[in-house]
Nucleic acid binder design. Structure first.
Lengths: 193, 193
DNA sequence: AAAAAACATTGACATTTATCAACGACCTGT
DNA sequence: ACAGGTCGTTGATAAATGTCAATGTTTTTT
């Protein structure tokens, strides 16, 4: 259960976790199971936990005026699920996160994370994650304004092939910011080439 | 010159800077002037400095295959200019930043910032900035997929009225991810109501 | 096994936005 | 003062995407 998390943290760290730290990590991260279709986070709540996905798949989405869902993030193994803004600022979230498959996660609260800032590798990872998210979002934003849909889909397929395997096309379409019919047509056009 | 930066850092800090720390800050941030139209950062370079804008206005943009510019960020007083990804990872940037007005900035290098991680307020601010950027981009992404342009423009006008004053409309249009003609038409429609 | 739900595709059509071109207003540097 | 650039607007048209509806398939549930 914890091996994945340990090696994930070490991958981000300058100095790997020592035995003592590993013990602490095992202590402060609480395992949970989220069944398919169940919420991990709901609009209006404060995001109390960040969750490291050991096994499974989840999605984050918002719901607009007309009740339409807009997928903002997809998560599979080795990703973190949660709304960092809500988590850090303790403000109510405007997003929802639910499980797309039965999912095992390791959760940590803000209080416990702050408490163990003393573990440099953990701190470093957390820091780098923020940066990584900021970049990733910036790039998506840039792409959505400058690249044709066909290319954005191809990029996604290359970069995160897992997504295409594990989420249905209408979810992928929403993630790319287009109607499911549009994605369907772009795909059929592309495959004819 | 430094007052703006000091109070900016304090605004983010749990514990304000003490005198000693203020002295250090003044030491490690180097003031620079960037004249209108000059580059602060160019595609292909590593972003060596993050710059706190004391006075002036800048923009970050990318250039696509066809030579079109896409504005990703706009900066005025009290904002940070730079590509954090490049800055932190020491990788070449794909963005350009240039001055839209004559600009005074306070710059800091990655080495010096790391060196003074010991100043908690500085560290805290840097951390929170990452989060803030990630959120802001996430929200823009969400908005661009779920809100009509008219509303996105109205939101921008309300949230950052400065931008509309200080950048021409074709820059604002690019920032919103639409052609300048489209923004022009949306504006004229809106004003008729 | 049957029924229900979720999913993907296709067609017809409406809407939004991009593109290309032209024009005039307004800076701005010399 | 004027020449050149920047800026904003408008029109005509094309392209991309959204919406609505129908259909068949697959998957899930009972």
């Amino acid at each position: 259960m914890y091996e994945k998390l340990i090696s994930y943290i070490n991958a981000y760290a300058t100095k790997p976790l020592d035995e003592e730290e590993v013990k602490v990590i095992k202590d402060i991260f609480v395992p949970k199971k989220i069944r398919k279709k169940q919420y991990f986070l709901q609009e209006g709540e404060v995001c109390k936990y960040m969750g490291f996905i050991v096994k499974g798949a989840m999605r984050m989405y918002s719901v607009d005026d007309k009740g339409m869902e807009h997928v903002l993030s997809l998560y599979v193994e080795d990703w973190w699920a949660g709304d960092r803004e809500s988590f850090v600022m303790l403000t109510p979230t405007v997003y929802n996160i639910d499980a797309w498959e039965d999912t095992d996660i390791l959760t940590i609260t803000q209080a416990r994370l702050a408490e163990f800032n003393s573990i440099p590798a953990l701190h470093e990872m957390s820091r780098k994650l923020d940066e990584k998210h900021a970049f990733a979002n910036m790039k998506r934003l840039n792409a959505s304004n400058s690249l044709p849909l066909e290319q954005r889909y191809a990029d996604l397929a290359e970069r995160y092939p897992d997504f295409l395997q594990r989420f249905p096309q209408h979810i992928i379409a929403s993630y790319l910011g287009v109607a499911k019919e549009t994605l369907s047509r772009v795909r059929s056009q592309t495959s004819k080439k």
